[in-house]
Amino acid sequence: MLMHFKHGQLKVRDFSLSIKAEAVKDDGTFEGYGSVFGVTDSYGEIVAAGAFTQSLKEIAAKGRPVPVLWQHQSSAPLGVYEALSEDEHGLKVSGRLLIDDVPKAREAHALLKAGAVSGLSIGYWVRKSSYDEKTGVRTLTELDLVEVSLVTFPANDDARIEAVKFKLERGQLPTKSEFEKALREAFPFSKSQAAAIASHGLDHLLRRESEGAGDIKSISDAIAGFNLPKL
């Protein structure tokens, strides 16, 4: 079953050990993979070879460099990607940190050299995908690359705290599963406690959003009004 999406939901995907310390040079340049082809993630999705082809052509046509971001923070660019390409393994990137001009870039460079930071994470839209009903696996066949970030804890999982923040900053609500997992990661909540918070707060906001009455700014106000169970 082939499915087409017109910029439906902005997603985040990352991979562990995508930057090796030896691939980080003293001048601030580095290489790694922002995405790997043919790997089934915890959400049952695979990025197909060639998924970025059209997006990379559009990026090249615009003639604007893609920034190196820190933890998906658009307000914290560290440098630029000088090359983005696909090979048999995945989306290969070559970046340059502005270590002489940006203090945070110098910090990131030191962390990369030490191996304390080793992950790359991409923000993207799904343009086309196919779904195998027998295996339950969705293959992402065409993606619109938005940005590539350096991340501290890559998890090959788009339900992370950074992913939830990423969506909220762009006016989107996370899914209930993403919200529950983010709560368990950010706080010492049990699975049942996180589910209770999500059910009392996020479910209400998602209903309001579907009715056209919700807005992202109302999250804190709405959750504050619920009688949550004692933790």
Rank of each mutant, 00 (worst) to 15 (best):
E211C: 06
E142Q: 12
P67F: 03
L91K: 15
V12Q: 14
V39N: 08
I99L: 06
E142V: 06
D132N: 15
V151S: 03
A195S: 13
V151C: 02
W125Y: 14
S218R: 14
A108N: 01
G79H: 07
K6D: 11
A108R: 06
G28F: 05
D27C: 04
A110Y: 02
P77D: 11
G63W: 00
L202V: 07
M3Y: 01
P154M: 10
D26I: 10
E88R: 13
E147W: 00
K57P: 00
A76C: 07
L111D: 10
S42T: 14
E107S: 07
H7P: 01
H7V: 07
E180P: 02
A61D: 13
E169A: 13
S149V: 07
S94W: 04
A163L: 09
I197S: 00
Y81P: 08
L145R: 01
F166T: 06
A163V: 05
S129F: 01
E133S: 14
H7G: 09
K128E: 15
A186V: 02
E180S: 08
V12G: 07
H7N: 14
R106V: 02
S94P: 00
N227D: 10
G201T: 13
E86A: 05
P65F: 06
S18Q: 13
K128M: 07
K167V: 10
S118F: 03
Y33S: 12
V117K: 06
P174F: 02
G115V: 09
H7M: 02
D158I: 07
F179P: 03
D101P: 00
N227W: 02
G214A: 10
R127T: 02
V151F: 04
T135K: 07
S35Y: 03
G28L: 08
Q71F: 05
S192Y: 00
F153N: 11
D221G: 05
